[in-house]
Amino acid sequence: MAHNLKIQLMDTHAGGDVSRIVTGGVGPLPGASVRQQMEYLRDDADGLRRLLLEEPYGIPEMSVDLIVPATDPEAEWGYIIMEVMGYPIYSGSNTICTATALLELGLVPKQEGVQTFKLEAPAGLVQIEARVQGGVVESITCEGLPSYIHTHRAAIDVPGLGEVTYSVAYSGGFYALVEAADLGFSLEASEERQLAETAHAIVEAIQAERGFFHYTLGDVGPLPFLHFMGPVEQVSRHAYRSRSATYVHPGVICRSTTGTGTSARLALMQYEGRIQPGDMLETVSLRNTGFIGTYTGLGDADGQPVVENRITGKGYVLSQADVVVNQDDAMVSGNVWESLRALQVPG
């Protein structure tokens, strides 16, 4: 038996959120769709996620995206998203990073100007628009999932905070949306730890009180996200800007504002009559990075009004490396090792 395993990675970031793109070292996964392959990893082979998001190989603030062959003939490639909270079916920042990596690796041939292609996420097909200038991927625009407001301005008593007013949006996961100023925050980098502690308390209280059901997916588990909203500034006739911060339970404030967080904001602004089709919202993070969300129209999904949207950002390549996993390393638990072996990672 081999005493070490190797996994090929391209580390990237979009808006500050690091996405570790797994480009090799994992064998074929069971499942007739990328969604089914994601469910296999979630239920039976969680070792890859744990390895790359835990010490000594990573930290919970990172994400992992495993590139897999697409099962839908319209898609160039598939990808499976892994985060500290588990396996989201979609993520804007991870999609931007994955599309960038595929272009930089030549797995999707790079073309000067604007090119379009599709990827297969666990949520389904995703339309990608890449802008390439001088051989550099300058931006990626991806479809956000159809988003909607599930709950508008509910109140909950949170231990240590008192009554907190929140809304809940679905944009690839359920998000609690809260006004940062109501909780005493101006959304500066120095507040990051306190933001995480505050969000943790609010999410725990909401999870203890209620669950949320998607109109087609049904029960998708406990609410995992909270988005702190800063004041909205109108910067031109069709453009708005707002400081923002996204929290992932348990304990992580994202470096970026996140694509799904931006989609959730668009859903709330549309619900409250504050934007029209074609309007854009730039969300600005604690580190002054941003994504731009565009509200493209109001759709209907099985009787549920949904906000159709696009997210634009830029991905950066940080490094390419082989990760070596040693079987006798006490920092790698036995069940993580066995899970990796089950994924047919070659030694």
Rank of each mutant, 00 (worst) to 15 (best):
V232G: 09
R237S: 15
P224G: 02
Y240G: 03
Q207A: 05
L217W: 15
R210Y: 00
V232P: 08
R237P: 02
L177F: 12
V203G: 05
A199L: 03
R243E: 09
G221D: 04
M229W: 08
A208V: 11
P224F: 03
R193S: 12
L177E: 10
L217V: 07
E191T: 04
R210K: 14
F174N: 09
Q207V: 12
Y215A: 11
Q207G: 04
L226M: 07
H214N: 07
G211I: 11
D182Y: 03
T198S: 07
P231R: 07
H214F: 11
A199W: 05
L187S: 01
V235A: 02
D219C: 05
S236W: 02
G184H: 08
V178L: 06
I202K: 04
P222A: 10
A239Y: 12
G211K: 12
L223M: 03
M229F: 09
Y240E: 08
R193V: 12
A239C: 13
G211F: 04
R193M: 08
F212C: 03
V203S: 04
E191P: 07
F213V: 15
E204P: 08
R210D: 03
A180M: 08
H200S: 10
E209S: 14
Q234C: 07
L223Q: 02
V220A: 13
S186F: 03
F174C: 01
E192C: 10
R243Q: 13
L195Q: 01
V220T: 15
Q234Y: 11
L177Y: 07
F213C: 13
G230C: 13
A239R: 14
E197W: 02
T198G: 04
R243F: 10
Q234T: 14
V235K: 07
H214G: 07
H214S: 11
L223S: 01
E191V: 04
H227S: 14
L187C: 05
D219K: 04
G184N: 02
L226D: 01
R243Y: 09
F213T: 14
L187N: 05
S186G: 00
A189C: 01
L223E: 00
V178S: 00
L217P: 09
V178N: 02
Q207H: 03
E188Q: 10
R243C: 09
E179F: 05
V232H: 08
L195P: 01
E191I: 06
L187G: 01
A205D: 11
E204L: 10
G211Y: 08
D182R: 07
E188L: 09
G218A: 10
P224A: 09
L195N: 02
I206K: 01
S186V: 14
H238F: 08
E188N: 10
E192F: 02
S236E: 13
S236Y: 05
A189V: 12
E188G: 06
E197T: 08
L187K: 06
E233M: 10
Y215G: 00
R237V: 15
R243G: 06
G184W: 04
E191C: 03
E197R: 13
Q207F: 06
A196D: 05
E179N: 13
